[in-house]
Design a protein around this nucleic acid. Structure first.
Lengths: 145, 145
DNA sequence: CCGGAGTGTTGACAACTGTAGTCGATCCGT
DNA sequence: ACGGATCGACTACAGTTGTCAACACTCCGG
């Protein structure tokens, strides 16, 4: 599915980031951004770009002499699976503190914070109330004790 | 620093996880756990273990014919820097949703949730109150009322 | 004291990464 | 139409990673 078989290497991630940022990027742009951001020669970027196409992360639609590169996988989804992998390596019990640190050192918008808060509230609820499986109960709120 | 120059590869992470779990592990144990967990031959594990020692992630104190392996870097710290790297690859604005997803799909204890909640509350505060940054109100007294 | 069992060391090797040069095709301005 | 600027394809190459087999060494039980 939206899953990615092939993993990205660090350098590839950097290029992907640029592609995601540009949304639809022409070689030139990618080269220059990558150039000043990582001091990579154009050739290096070309190679990485090619590998990304091979791995199916970006599409290259021909236009003019070259291509226009476009991300095929969403940034969020990709990051998510990377995060998943990370948590897989986490020793049981370390996930909590880990998340805490991450929340701590990441600058978030108010909306993000709100979202997280509700998430947490919800989780707390399902902890208190025994894992009654599908709490189909639509959040009509007032669970009033 | 507690920082790690060398990065761990996936396979290495898996071994590290075992070492962290065992806390102090003898070859035998690592081999067997790794064996049934990833169907690796002992030799493979030996190699990984050696590389981990080289990279400074585990110590090998001689005992008997072999060694006792012990983690040198804490699991949390290591995970943390991995998480850091991950966020570095994140496109601006994706961090919030990413964290949300992570919190969502991770099972957390009540304590963890509480911790996160306070973190979030704190963050919200500092957002509302102008980023007056270092409000290092040091009790040198007389802030004059 | 000896031999088997368990360990670490070496050596291998293919695939994947990080970086980049060279070359021929192509496009645009003049 | 021509030449310079671009661009992608191909090639290269050292270093890292994933997996192991062979071999040599040490320790314990008999």
């Amino acid at each position: 599915m939206t899953a990615d078989q092939k993993n990205l290497s660090q350098a590839e991630w950097k290029v992907m980031k640029i592609v995601w940022e540009l949304e639809k990027a022409m070689a030139r742009e990618v080269y220059s951004v990558a150039g000043e951001r990582h001091s990579w020669t154009p050739t290096t970027v070309k190679t990485l770009l090619r590998r990304l196409v091979e791995k199916g992360y970006v599409s290259a639609t021909p236009v003019g002499n070259g291509f226009v590169y476009r991300p095929l996988k969403g940034a969020l989804a990709t990051l998510e699976s990377a995060a998943d992998a990370l948590f897989t390596n986490a020793v049981a019990g370390a996930t909590g503190p880990l998340l805490a640190r991450m929340v701590e050192k990441t600058s978030l918008s108010e909306a993000d914070l709100d979202a997280l808060q509700s998430l947490i509230d919800a989780k707390k609820q399902s902890l208190k109330k025994p894992p009654e499986s599908k709490r189909a109960r639509k959040p009509d709120g007032r669970t009033r004790s």
